[in-house]
Design a protein around this nucleic acid. Structure first.
Lengths: 115, 115
DNA sequence: CACATATTCAACCATTTGGTTGACGATGTT
DNA sequence: AACATCGTCAACCAAATGGTTGAATATGTG
């Protein structure tokens, strides 16, 4: 019985999978293109993508013979909620609060991630 | 070469370890007392605690023959930073904002998440 | 000293994980 | 029809993970 947090944290525990998520921040991508920067087989990447999908961190939609991968930010939000469940027992965390404000209340033009 | 996020997420991927962290929210505890609620050997818990320590999520300090375990909230903060690195590229998220406020500014009496 | 308590260590085991390769089923292209 | 491309499947493998037990090591206590 694997619960939601198990698969979420488990998916994020692998550096290849985190790198894939970072790639997908830029744009939706086909499986082959996701695989391109990595020094491992397409099949391996395909498995990683399946794990990310099971965790709800991405979704995959097949159009023609191309399987498009798309980031699902809602899953990340679940994480935030859990993590902040711990934060709330610290003295009010003003640093995190400030970062949150900067992130959420920015100018909204959604500039590219920089790097 | 295991990086910081690998060990952080890896440590959090196990439900027993998350439950231990929840226990430690209440108070610092001796290894034996941490182990008490779990249906597994003391040695197993001792290993889990070592993993949490390596991830920086807790610290252990030996006083006499008892090894005291203490939550280290800074590690959780690292996580928040990483997670919010993704969140900041979403369209402004008022739901999350509201939850953040509740979590940060709540009265702190609510129970810990995921027993 | 003799004994109990707290914790880790070491060896072992089953299962999961992360990777490989080669074959395969779809879907596009010429 | 013939071929190429996209992606998954299946079988396999080595290494890591999560657990066990029993012995060992400190450290308290009568």
């Amino acid at each position: 019985m694997e619960n939601r947090l198990d698969s979420l944290f488990g998916a994020l525990a692998d550096p290849t999978r985190r790198a894939i998520l970072t790639l997908l921040l830029e744009d939706d991508m086909a499986v082959t293109d996701v695989a391109e920067p990595f020094a491992m087989s397409l099949a391996a990447i395909s498995k990683h993508l399946a794990i990310l999908t099971r965790a709800g961190l991405i979704s995959q939609e097949k159009r023609g013979r191309v399987n498009w991968c798309k980031l699902e930010p809602d899953a990340m939000r679940e994480l935030t909620v859990w993590v902040q469940g711990f934060g709330q027992f610290e003295p009010v965390n003003l640093d995190a609060f400030e970062r949150f404000l900067n992130a959420e209340l920015g100018d909204g033009t959604e500039a590219a991630p920089e790097a």
